[in-house]
Write a protein that binds this DNA or RNA. Sequence first.
DNA 1: CAGCCATATTGCAACGTTGAATGCGACGTT
DNA 2: AACGTCGCATTCAACGTTGCAATATGGCTG
Lengths: 348, 348
Amino acid sequence: MSSRLKDVAALAGVSTRTVSNVVSGSAPVAAETRARVQAALDELGYRPNMAARSLRAGRTGLIGLAIPELHSPYFGELASLIVEAAQQRSWTVVIDQTFGDPHAEKRLLEGVGSRLVDGLVISPWSLGPEELSDRSRDVPVVLLGEQPPRGLADRVAVDNVLAADGATTHLIESGRRRIAAIGVQPHLHNETARQRLAGYHQALRRAGLLPDPHLEKAVTALHRADGASAMAALLEADTRPDAVFAFSDELALGALHIAHERGVRVPQDLAVVGFDGTEDGRYANPPLTTVVPDKRQIAERALQCLADRIYSPASAVPPQDVVISHHLEKRASSGPARPLPTNIAAAV
Amino acid sequence: MSSRLKDVAALAGVSTRTVSNVVSGSAPVAAETRARVQAALDELGYRPNMAARSLRAGRTGLIGLAIPELHSPYFGELASLIVEAAQQRSWTVVIDQTFGDPHAEKRLLEGVGSRLVDGLVISPWSLGPEELSDRSRDVPVVLLGEQPPRGLADRVAVDNVLAADGATTHLIESGRRRIAAIGVQPHLHNETARQRLAGYHQALRRAGLLPDPHLEKAVTALHRADGASAMAALLEADTRPDAVFAFSDELALGALHIAHERGVRVPQDLAVVGFDGTEDGRYANPPLTTVVPDKRQIAERALQCLADRIYSPASAVPPQDVVISHHLEKRASSGPARPLPTNIAAAV
DNA sequence: CAGCCATATTGCAACGTTGAATGCGACGTT
DNA sequence: AACGTCGCATTCAACGTTGCAATATGGCTG
């Protein structure tokens, strides 16, 4: 239990340094000695002490992943991919949930100074430029999403304007005219929501449609419940929308839920498009059309950014701005608007 | 950047030990000295080095969370709660995904010896007793779920037999007779699935129903796709089931999806009950009846077990077996079987 | 055979922190 | 006045590991 190099050395009758050499292979060891040490290692079940190694090496082999919440489908899937990608790089991931709390995010960035992690991947919700440009940032940081202005740290994100434009255009092309948007967040400095709204406006204007403020529903969070109440409000208005572009799959699923509850047929009476490409949407009833960011690519590129800076700290490389590809996955929720016999529409 | 106690001490004109005392408050410091040191601390933006602290203290303040996969709704929600609960105990969580790979789980347990973590919460998928009773286990381990036999480590789980019985009984009481089960895993040493099957059998027999092997569908994983293909197989059989008890919400959602696709009405033609109480199910169409384990309690009690052992290592306390409460959340997917006009049934 | 190189092993120091022991004045008590 | 005590600050060592430099042992060349 908890054997040290010293114990192994004593058992094998060599110095601790030789044991260390056997373990790490950093210097040549005679075959016979190596065998004797190996036997001692096995017998004692030696495991190197991470704290000591980290102290010596100045690296912990840990990277931090800070996301608003782990339980939402999008962040769950993303976190899973990041943990997986980190594993391949022999990194271990420590997770921090910020719940979108600016204080938590700020505290986190400061805590990075304690060198618990070699790098940090953070998906900020309301992090300003001032917090980021702070001192004591010798630990590399990668930002996920659009949040803070470019140029302060590496950033990995999809082109939200383009993606939102594409989703909205798809709705327009399928004949919808009163297209609502769910997910505006005016109370937050949320650049992501702002960009998706911009893309939505852009598509509407290009089609000669006038953005209608009554069709733009704000939410406090991006959860199913928020989507549900936004949808409920839209359905109670004088003139109902014939389509909804939700800024997240969760919002879209909440909207679908209310539509189903109120007997509004999807897609016949109402088309719904989400954003995130979560597995949830694929199995929704009806299956959800959604903007799919290449999440695996996000994970991969984010860790690549970290690796570049961790392994060549002298890099004068300016902050990267990595744009991740996306595509629109068209499913039944944005199918044809004309009423069809239910069983034909449902039978795929 | 990266200032040490030594730097602060030099700036404040005191010894490193005094700075340490100011930082940790472990010994009295004169008000005037404290102020001077504090000023130096602030100026240099001192952050204690975690590796050095850990090495000295013999503790890292990290706990490991090992789960099959982070992206599934159940484990995502559970992980979120555990991270949250850990935060309240000033622990940081490192996440490991095993993907149900026995080798990964075993390797993980061995790696625990490196003292990277002070404790480990593991949700084993196919971990046998032999791996667990292994040596070098001076790091406390808590098992989530039914997997290995009692008595080898602390364990936290719901009473799966009781829960499955309750779900099945609910279906029987709502008038169903051909009740299928989705989620058997004969190829794995999966005690959880086995217990849920046992509870299902128990309920059937009590009601005088004979378990029918054709109604018990095996799956390789507990994902939506597995539930979908199992459901598809059930619907293609000669005599269709009038109810399905799925061993996870994901399986249930896959089943719902196929039912919807094939025009099978839920709950009129088919009742569906899931297991896990994920947020997914609440917003499904129709909303999913499901067995809800108290996940917050799971997280809380699991960490409590760890804390007990971490903070009083001399404990000769035998392994605990904590049973977590659960309840059946009845929603529309297991509503009345009689055909009703669609719009009345849908409008809640 | 001296001199040199390659291989194998070792000792020392340091990473940054804190527990334990020590120094040392000032204060209160007898 | 002498003694014990308390408050505050310091020194020393150690946690387990590895980089660096030094040493020991042989084999080879000139």
